[in-house]
């Protein structure tokens, strides 16, 4: 199965986080509640890849490269 990343998610799409990148960013993701198993939906996708996610009542913006480092399973 080919793994998909968060950056492939289009506006309105939903996905479950499958794998976070290693290192410091991983801790920062876990801290805000973006952890393996969490379900996120894409509120907005800007040209250039910046993505706005909604999960747990919060809206978080990620730059495109960061989104590309997170593996997801589309729902």
């Amino acid at each position: 199965m080919r793994s998909e990343t968060l950056s492939m998610l289009g506006k309105g799409g939903r996905a479950r986080i499958a794998r976070l990148p290693e290192g410091e960013m991983r801790s920062r993701f876990i801290r805000i509640g973006l952890m393996e198993g969490a379900v996120v939906s894409c509120l907005e996708k800007l040209p250039g890849g910046t993505i706005v996610l909604v999960f747990n009542h919060q809206e978080v913006a990620l730059s495109g490269d960061l989104a590309a480092s997170i593996e997801v399973a589309r729902l």
Partner: peptide, 19 residues
């Protein structure tokens, strides 16, 4: 402000800055 940062993030990346 954070929304503005989100909006211009990609453009500012060209010059090595983030939103």
């Amino acid at each position: 402000l954070p929304r503005l940062a989100t909006l211009v993030d990609r453009a500012l990346r060209f010059v090595g800055l983030n939103g």
